[in-house]
Amino acid sequence: MFKRIAVMMLATLGLNALAADDGKVKTLLKQADEYRLALDSGRVETEVRSFKAGALDKTRLYAVYLKPGHRSLVLFRTASERGQKMLMLGDDYWLMMPSSQRPLRITPMQKLLGEASTGDIATMTWGEDYDGTVSGEETIDGVPCLKLDLTGQRKGVSYPRIVLYLSKKDRHPVQAELYVASDKLAKLARFTLGTVEGRKQVTVMTLIDHLQKERSTEVHYLSRSDKTLSDDYFNPAFLVRADLPQ
């Protein structure tokens, strides 16, 4: 009898610990997200520099509009891609090429294969999409970090598993291991902090490709603003309209 009560108490304690851990991870992710996008909705200007064997291969410019509910609209702004738009609504994606002027539904796989993987620039937060556990502590580049094992909470996330390292001191993201569906390590992300309008923000995310060894990418966050678009703009049929603020 005493043994059974002890087991039940331990189980209850374990569940409470898990729940506490779950809440803690969500809080940690929210704190980390503040360094990437401290807004529910907004516009982020990014410059993506792709490197091949260490040499700069391409530079691309994007304007990304983000809204709650996993909605993002990417406007391609480089000369060779001008007029392209990609809309992401949860797990559904559309691409509009200026030469055809019709929104084309694409698969998650086609989205992943695109230039600079638009998912990398359109995903600015983890809190909404991931959950997991704190699995330990490690020091990365001299920064004592909490190690978080995260699992995607919806099927449309670019990386179903992430191992994220957050600074123990202020919870800023230091490094992330990004795994694809086959659980292969696809990319290693490193985060560089800078001071933007008096706040510490991630200014550069460097992605080292582990599937294509010679490739790496730097995502430079040029500006963040609270400029938002009405819901109409996040309708696939709206992509053919040109009254998008550029």
């Binding site: 559904d92 084309l104 698969t107 796989m109 099927k155 569906a181």
Partner: peptide, 10 residues
């Protein structure tokens, strides 16, 4: 109609 039943197929 255009339908994406899984991550690789349209």
């Amino acid at each position: 109609t255009s339908w994406v039943p899984d991550e690789a197929l349209e």
